[in-house]
Every structure is written in C-alpha cells, then in structure tokens.
Design a protein around this nucleic acid. Structure first.
Lengths: 325, 325
DNA sequence: CTGAAAGCGCTAACAG
DNA sequence: CTGTTAGCGCTTTCAG
C-alpha cells in the first residue's frame, strides 16, 4: 500500500481511503492511485485491515453437513445476500454431534467473524458461553425457540408434523407409519406426528429409524421392512425427507403396489424433484431460500441497530398436496 | 494474551509459545498458563497471528455451486483432511461464469489463504495472473491438463465420454441420444460421446441441452422432447448427470416403455441413489471423495516441499454396469 | 526455558 | 482533501 502511494505521489493512508471510500479523495488523486494499483498488481491484505478495524467482514456459517441439499441451498441463499453486502463466508460442518460443534465454534470464533449462523437451537453450555462472550450477532436457524442466544429463524417442527397428521387424518387415513433419519429435528417431528395421529384416533404408528442421512435406498428398504416386520398393509407413511419418500415410491412401484391407494406417502422438504416423481409427491414445504435470506436479513438488522424488533422469525411451512396421499 | 500471561506470572510471548508449541515451555509454566486461559476465557485472535506469521491457515475452495452434490461431497472430503491438519475452509461459489470467478478469486486472495482449490482448468488470463503472483499452492480439480497453474487432480472428460460410447456400442446399441446440462465440462463430454459413437458407426446422435443444472424434471422432459421432436424410438441415452437419468427412468415407466429394451440409459456420477433406481442405473463413476482427498494431499505435498513429483493426478473413472443399458 | 523489542499491513483518530 | 501518529494482537528474532 505504501508502494502504491509512492507511485501515485500520495501517502499510504490516502491509498487506504481511496480503497475504502473513493469519495474521500479527489478525482484526480483517485485516478492516479487506481493506475498505480493496476501497475503494481496490488492486492489488499484483508487480514491486516480486519485487525486494525476490528471488523473482519467474515461471517461464519455452521451447518450439520454441506452435502445435505437442504442446508446447502439455505447456505447458497444466505451467502448470496451476505456477499452482496461485502461479507465472506466461512463454512463449518458440525455433524449432528454437540461436542464436534463445540470445537468448530471455537476455531471459527478465533477468526473473529462479524456474525455467526448456527443450525439448530440445541447447543452445549460451553458453546452458549463462548457465543455470548464473543458479543457478535448470532442467528440460529431451522428451528424456533423463545430463548435464542440472540435471534432465530425457522419454523416449529412440532407444528409441521402435527399438521401432517391432521392432513393424513382428514384425508381418511387411519393407519400410518413414519420413516426417520438420524437427526434430532426429524426425531421430534416423528414424535409429534405419532402423538397427533394417535390422538386423532389413528391406529398405533409403526416407525422405522435410520441412524444416518435420508436416501432413496433407505426409503426402499424402509417400505420392505414395514411390510415384512411391521405387518404394514396399507396406510400413509410420513417421511423425514423427500429422499425417503421417493424410495418408497420406487419400491411400491417395483412391488406393484398402487400409490396412494395401497401405499400413501408424505414427504418432507418439497425438494426440486417432488413435483416430478410418479405420482407427484405430497410434501411439507419449507422454503429454504427464504430461510437463508431471512437469516441474512436478521443479521443485517442487528448490524444496523443493536435493538431487535423481534428476535424470533417463524417462516412457517406448507403442506403441498399432490397425488401420493 | 498479555492478560493471560499476567495471571500466570509470565510474559505474553510465553503464552504465545505455550499455545503454538507446548513443548517449548516448562511443564509447570504450561499448567499455570492453561489455568489462566480457562479462568479468563481467552480466545486467540487468529487474525493477528496470521498477520504476524504470514500464514493464515486458511484454504479457499472455489466451486461452481455448493448446491450441486458432486461439488459438495468433494468439498466435504477435502475439508475433512484440511481441518484435521489445522486448516479452515473459505468456500466461494463461482457459478459457471469466468467473470464471476475473477471477482471471487480476488476477494479470496485478499484474505491471504495459504492455498486455493479451484474447479476446472479454464480461467481468465486475469485469474491466472493473480494466482501466479499470489505464489501459493493451487490445485485445479475435476479436470486434467498438461498445463496446470500449479497442479491438478481430475480425470479426462473426453476419455470418460468415449468410454461410454464404446460401452454403448459394444452392448449392441446403434442409436443414441445425449442429454446435457449447462456446464462446460458436460458439453465436452457430450461432444466426445457424439464423436466416438458416430465414429463407431452409430447413427447420428440426437442432443437435448438444458441451460441450467440437471434435475429429475429435466430428465423427464428430455425424454418427452426426444420422442416428440427428434423421433426417438429406442436406443441409449447418455446423460450428463444421474439426475437426468433418473428422470428418464421415471418418464419411461410412466409411458410404459421398457428399460433397457426400449429406452436404455447411462448416467454420470454414480450418485448414491444409482444402485437403487428401478431398474438400477448404469453410470460412469467418478470418485468424488477420492477427488477431494487427492486434492488435499496434493496441497499438503506442496506445503511440505516446493518440488512437485507429478503435478497431474488422474483419478480416472469407471463405468458401472447395472441394468439400464 | 523465558523475556524484550520490532514489526506484520492496515485503519482510526487527530491535525492541518 | 491529505498527512502524521498510534496502535490492532500476535509471531519472530535476538538475548540472556
């Protein structure tokens, strides 16, 4: 930066100003500086800038996994807005394990992010303490709580699952099953679905749980298991993800079972392929782009003014009725 | 750090040493320092450390899109290794546009990453210049070239597509079509497939291109288009992605077309669901985890010693024969 | 094994 | 509009 200044015949600070706010230097000085930058191939050092200004322009985003499309698409929407505002993203994967999250949070905080996005509302006491003393805006996503660390953007998993149970019951289903991936929020939905479906007078809900992530193969296997081991002989299957639902459709077709008359399915997530399965998949839609943009908006609002109008943003959900139930 | 030192009765530098290399301080001093850290809740400032040491421990990884599972799973494998070695990932999305890539590269370089992962081997002259003068290890992935910026890890798209054409021909197919997403590498595969299939004596290959990313819906539409507008009446369809292939299977089943006798399909990527479609999908496998780990290994080797044994790593591909062709 | 001093490249005051 | 002076919180180097 000093070299650039020397070449342009100004001091180093003037170069700094030209870069951070061009309106602070005269037009001709600006031009000379820009020329000098081009000639020298100068690349600013954001590290030094961050240290001096105490603003890193970094946002850290922690998700369970980047290979899960629901988190990836949320990140995409989130980062698009943040990038447009000059912030860069540091992405971290926390798995579904609180201890792992703790280590990731610690290393990310050492980079002094200006804000942090966290997935979920359940964190270890150590994480809460670190986050609180970091004193930066924090947004927790994919769930809502009355007691966020700072603010949260999401929806009620209990309400979504109960709505699915109501939907199933009102469409005449009295028998049901649930297929669930190894994810705390999915498990909460499963429990809420079971509770509500049975409360409405449905027969006991059979459940099949997978420890890992949802997959098409898992959905096929789940239907096979339900039939072979749970005596499943018709009814609606509430899935924790559209991936499972798609697998159930494939397996049903392979077995010659009619959908929805013999096997009905409700997916979760309303992923891109849901309208194009055969038959088109009924699913609970969660607007992942909106989740990402609302999370970004919440952080930007916190940057603008310290007072929060409302720390809890419920983006809701929607049951998209198609032809599988 | 000075506070911690005061509490432990040592100077600030000693704390620094205790953190960077515990063996440099005596056992009892170390213990006092660790206690002091616990008491004060001290969180190191990696920004300052990076500025002073000229090593940021940051790696920037640039992919076209994080919502595409093939890039996401590569990133996952890559970051796992890098994180274990103490490096953190800055993720950037470049889209499929060279100009966008330029802006992303510039901002990432300003953060002084210790190395960079780039997707693809085609970059603008400005990007090459910036990267060269950054003088850090660079790995280009998903493709190979004799003239990488620094080193590359990938496979030959031309060879993969030609192998698919050979496979189709040797399995008796004389008619073929290709369905391709809007991605330069996919287009190169399409061209290589067409060239080889026709060279082997196949009839002219009908092509359907989509500007955006591959999807199940796109695959369904592609088969409909091939039948309606290209008079497709049997043969093998080479897809740029398993997503398209899956859509073709769904559409074929919906139309009552037998697979593979009336419509045969070859996917690309061998994604998780490929073995579980009905019938199981024949696909060109690219080991994305291996791609990520090999890219990480290449950078780590560059960190260890400046001389490269071999700058080009070809991880190859494999045609997985299942039942759709 | 520990400490003192210097400085990484920038921004934030304060002057002029 | 521009320059001067002080740091930001660390690591590095050189002494002891």
């Amino acid at each position: 930066m000093a070299d650039v200044g020397r070449l342009a015949g100004v001091s180093q600070v003037t170069v700094s100003r030209a870069l951070s706010d061009p309106s602070m230097v005269s037009a001709e000085t600006l031009k000379r500086i820009q020329d000098a930058i081009r000639v020298t191939g100068y690349v600013p050092n954001a590290l030094a800038g961050a240290l001096a200004s105490n603003r890193s322009n970094l946002i850290s985003a922690l998700v369970p996994s980047v290979t899960n499309i629901v988190y990836a698409s949320m990140l995409h929407a989130f980062s698009k807005i943040m990038r447009a505002r000059g912030y860069q993203l540091m992405v971290g994967e926390t798995g579904f394990d609180l201890a792992e999250e703790e280590a990731v949070v610690a290393t990310h905080l050492s980079r002094r992010p200006d804000a942090m996005l966290l997935t979920g509302i359940h964190h270890s006491p150590a994480v809460r303490r670190m986050l609180l003393s970091a004193a930066i805006p924090i947004v927790e996503v994919w769930d809502i709580t009355e007691t966020p660390i700072d603010c949260c953007v999401g929806f009620s998993h209990v309400a979504a699952a109960a709505a699915a149970a109501n939907y199933a019951h009102s469409h005449g289903y009295r028998r049901a099953a649930a297929v669930t991936a190894g994810d705390e929020r999915a498990a909460r939905r499963r429990d809420a679905f079971v509770r509500q479906f049975e409360a409405l007078g449905g027969t006991p809900v059979a459940t099949v749980d997978f420890p890992g992530h949802a997959s098409l193969g898992g959905g096929r296997q789940a239907l096979a298991t339900l039939i072979a081991e749970h005596g499943f002989s018709g009814g609606v299957i509430f899935c924790s993800s559209d991936q499972f639902a798609q697998g159930i459709l494939v397996e049903a077709k392979a077995r010659g079972l009619a959908v929805p008359s013999e096997v009905a399915v409700i997916g979760f997530g309303d992923q891109e392929f849901a309208p194009h399965t055969d038959p088109p998949l009924t699913s609970v839609r969660v607007d992942r782009e909106k989740l990402g943009t609302a999370a970004a908006d919440a952080l930007l609002a916190r940057f603008a003014k310290k007072t929060m109008t409302n720390p809890v943003t419920d983006i809701g959900f929607q049951i998209i009725e198609r032809e599988t139930s």
